[in-house]
Computed example of a mutant assay.
Amino acid sequence: MSQRFRTVRPALAAAAATAALTLTLAACGSGTSTHTAGHGGMPSSSAPGHGMASMPGMGSPSASASADGMASMPGMGTASAGDGLAAARGDYRMASTDSGLPAGKATAYRFTIMGEGGKPVTDFAVDQTKRMHFYAVRSDLTGFQHLHPTMAGNGTWTAPLAALQPGTWRLYASFTPGSGSGKGQDFVLSRTVKVSGMDMASPLPAASGTTTVDGYTVTVQGDPMAGMAHQLTATVSKDGKPVTDLQPYLDTYAHLTAFHQGDLAFAHLHPETEVKGDHGGPTLTFHAQFARSGNWRLFLQFQTGGTLHTAALTLRVG
Results as ranks from 00 to 15, higher is better:
D68T: 00
V213T: 15
L21W: 12
E272H: 10
K194C: 06
W296M: 04
L189V: 05
Y216A: 15
V218K: 03
G77E: 02
Y92S: 02
G118M: 08
G59Q: 04
P271N: 06
G104N: 00
G69M: 00
M198R: 13
L141V: 09
G57V: 03
A63F: 06
S237L: 01
T210P: 10
H35E: 14
D123C: 00
C28L: 14
G197K: 10
H39I: 02
L264D: 11
F302A: 07
A152S: 15
T212Y: 07
M200S: 12
D223F: 05
R93M: 06
M114T: 08
E274T: 11
N154P: 12
G77A: 02
F299D: 12
T244L: 00
G38N: 09
M70L: 12
D239N: 11
F111V: 09
R316D: 08
S30L: 14
A206Q: 14
A37H: 15
T158V: 15
G227S: 10
G277V: 05
D83I: 06
V195R: 06
G69P: 01
G318T: 15
T307P: 01
P48E: 09
V220C: 08
L313W: 09
G318N: 14
S293L: 05
M200Q: 12
Y135S: 05
Q303L: 14
M114R: 03
A14N: 13
S62M: 00
P242Q: 03
L232Q: 05
L232H: 01
Q303N: 05
G306R: 05
A201G: 12
K241I: 07
A27M: 08
T78F: 07
Q145V: 12
T150K: 14
L298V: 15
V243Q: 01
G100Q: 14
Y135W: 13
A20R: 10
A63Q: 04
T32G: 10
F290N: 07
A136C: 11
Y92H: 03
V317T: 14
G184K: 02
F5C: 06
P56V: 09
A47C: 09
A11E: 15
A163N: 11
P149W: 12
G180A: 08
A11G: 10
G155H: 10
T273V: 08
Q185F: 09
A71Q: 04
G318I: 04
G305P: 00
R4G: 05
G90T: 01
K183G: 02
V137M: 14
A258I: 12
L25K: 13
G222A: 03
S293V: 07
L284Y: 01
T211Y: 13
S96V: 05
D83W: 00
R191K: 12
